[in-house]
Computed example of a mutant assay.
Amino acid sequence: MKKIKVILVDDHAVVRAGYKILLKDIDDIEVAAEAENGNEAIELIKNNKYDVIVTDMSLPDIGGIDLIRKIKTINSDSKILVVTMHEEVVYVEQALHSGAMGYMTKSADPQLLSKAIRQISRGKKYIDDELQQRMTYEGSRDKDSILSRLSTREFEIFCLLAEGLNTNEISKKLNISYKTSANYSTNIKSKLGATTVADVARIAIRYNIIKV
């Protein structure tokens, strides 16, 4: 039996250990590698072939959306499953738009992990049922949401601004120039009708992007 080779990308060792426990007795799935940050994952993916990449959206060095984009640049056929704490529909939409094939939250039934990996390895998208229902409901309710005005990159920077990162910190995290980071920040505020970073944070709270 050919096994599905998986790489686990998460900055928490206990989370990766939990995934390995869940998958260790699954005959057709093999955890072939682990990475604790985005840059480590990129190096492994450049030099090895994995059938499915399981990654968090919140990593210490690279934003999840940026990581998905970089992985797809390395290999456009990469099959990526996002497993994260972010339950907001806008995160799901942005991850899928960036190239992920699946999305599930860390609060989902743990037994669904192997199902998601198998489904994605066969080239089929996977979104857990609860998220799928929310996407259908919120998609019709919030189709005119101001967040829909943002591109994938703008949404990523919007989230970082809302978390309190300044322009310089964002430029370093995303490996872009200070000027580019500043331009994005200005454009985001303009699209959202925001004047200050505090305004950006309030919008993020309204849409449950950050919690208070």
Rank of each mutant, 00 (worst) to 15 (best):
V92Y: 09
I127W: 05
D51A: 10
T196V: 03
A32I: 02
K211W: 02
A194T: 07
G102C: 09
I29P: 05
E36C: 12
H97G: 07
A95Q: 03
I42D: 06
V15N: 06
I26H: 04
S114E: 12
Q132K: 05
Y184H: 14
M101Y: 15
R69V: 15
N183A: 08
F158W: 00
N168Y: 03
E34T: 08
Y207A: 00
A41C: 09
E43I: 10
V54G: 13
G63L: 12
Y19H: 04
D11S: 10
S145I: 02
G38K: 07
I203G: 05
N187C: 04
Y50A: 09
I7D: 12
L192I: 11
S78P: 07
A204T: 10
R69M: 14
G99C: 04
T152R: 03
K179E: 10
G64V: 14
I68H: 07
Q119T: 15
I42H: 06
V52A: 05
I170Q: 01
E40C: 05
L112T: 13
L174E: 03
E163Y: 02
I65C: 12
V197N: 14
D129R: 04
D128E: 10
L81A: 11
V212K: 05
S181D: 00
L150F: 00
E156M: 10
M101V: 00
S190D: 12
Q94D: 13
Y91K: 08
E138H: 02
S107Q: 08
C159Q: 08
Q94K: 15
K3V: 12
V200Y: 00
I53K: 14
I80H: 11
I176S: 01
S107N: 07
D61Q: 13
S181A: 03
K72F: 09
V15K: 06
T196D: 13
K5Q: 07
V92N: 05
A198K: 12
R149P: 00
F158S: 00
Y91M: 15
L44S: 14
E130Y: 07
I42A: 02
P60V: 12
S145G: 02
Y103M: 10
I26Q: 07
V54F: 12
M85S: 15
K72H: 11
Q94R: 15
G193T: 05
I45P: 02
K70P: 05
S181F: 01
N175H: 08
N47D: 11
I71M: 06
L96E: 01
Y178P: 01
I157F: 04
V89P: 04
K211M: 06
A35L: 08
D27K: 05
Y207M: 01
R153N: 14
G38A: 06
K143N: 04
I127M: 03
H86Y: 08
V82P: 08
I71T: 02
E40Y: 05
V9C: 13
K72E: 09
F158M: 00
Y126T: 03
E93V: 08
K72M: 10
E130A: 05
Q133F: 11
R134W: 09
A201L: 06
